[in-house]
Design a protein around this nucleic acid. Structure first.
Lengths: 203, 203
DNA sequence: TGTATTCAATACAGAACTGTATCCTACTCT
DNA sequence: AGAGTAGGATACAGTTCTGTATTGAATACA
């Protein structure tokens, strides 16, 4: 009762990996469960014994990514709490790093967001996840601002929302016109502006 | 040999209209040819006698849609530039007015964007259209800022890109969680912040 | 060694979609 | 009024997808 469990999580992982690629290539609706299984080297039997549906798999994918990201950010905190400037760079670096392939990830998350806009069930689940992610980020922001004597002119939660909006909007632009806009340059240009706009030193 | 031709273009138009709604509801991949025909009140016979494939229709729809949007924007610009009111009102007005149904437009344009991210040809066309849109907005911003003695700490084009990024990112959030975030509230909350960040009165 | 269990493969039934081939109707034009 | 034609409807064959029910193999444990 131990090796089977280990192999189970391994197939889960391979299915998630496979799904990442297939979704990026064909889109969420365009990718059949069978495509995903083929890519991962399994049959649908494996899929349905690990996930209840395609939605469930995507949500697992999101959870894994946000978990990883939060973990990495928290690991950074102790060192950088006192240097907000470098912290921003560091966090941006992490975003690039935690998300292996920006293009791939953007495609998938955008697709599923669209899907959620049309499916109340998916929307509920996605919102729940995103709310938890925002809550974690908000807590981090509050800690940082306390430690570094920074005050925000808007509530931390609003600030987090703004950062997410800018990040996603900027990424969309830079992916769409890679020749005019070097990858990530917009994010790196915009976020400091935003940070500057809502923060001021408290003394 | 004239009424048939007129009726032909009429069915084409109705099919395109129907496609717009069905695509918004179910997405490109999720919408079957039959769905589109049902919506338009035809059968697939009509479809295949007017379009070679769904892709072909998507292309035609894209052209028609972007043409229409650009037209509307051009028509709106002179009014906005001359009207009293803040730069912010003008920009928001343009964005809100040119786009009738925010939700439907968001779904469709996001769908197009995703499509473009996978099709270089579509990407070229979309970028061209977006560049013209940005140019219009940039011109508007420059005119108004000159008239109101505002200076920007970043080039107007960058500013426009930032506004677009924030607007799209915010819209995505507010559509996804309508219960937590009233429609448009994020856009209206964020844009003043951004505007404030990059502008200062010149005297 | 034998038994129980767990995970993935396979087989299957039903639904949905596509694209074509054919038929029908209503104009057009003389 | 009658022939020709264009546009759209209908019928159909083939493919693909989904989800479940059953089977088989490998492992854990007694």
């Amino acid at each position: 009762m131990e090796t089977p469990k280990r192999s189970r999580t391994a197939t889960r992982a391979r299915l998630l990996e496979g799904a990442l690629e297939v979704f990026a290539e064909r889109g969420f609706a365009g990718a059949s469960v069978e495509d995903i299984c083929d890519q991962a080297g399994f049959t649908r039997g494996a899929f349905y014994s690990n996930f209840g549906s395609k939605d469930e798999l995507v949500l697992a994918l999101f959870q894994a990514t946000t978990d990883r990201l939060l973990e990495q950010i928290e690991a950074l905190l102790p060192d950088l709490a006192n240097q907000p400037g470098t912290l921003l760079d560091a966090v941006l670096g992490l975003l690039d790093e935690a998300i292996g392939d920006q293009r791939q990830w953007h495609l998938i998350s955008t697709e599923f967001t669209l899907h959620a806009l049309r499916n109340p069930d998916a929307a509920r689940a996605l919102n729940e996840q995103r709310a938890m992610f925002r809550a974690s980020l908000t807590r981090l922001v509050e800690e940082i601002s306390a430690a570094s004597h920074l005050q925000f002119s808007v509530p931390a939660e609003q600030f987090v929302r703004l950062v997410i909006a800018v990040h996603e909007g900027a990424r969309s632009q830079s992916l769409l016109e890679p020749s005019d806009v070097p990858a990530g340059s917009l994010e790196h240009a915009f976020l400091p502006i935003v940070l500057d706009a809502v923060s001021r030193p408290s003394r």
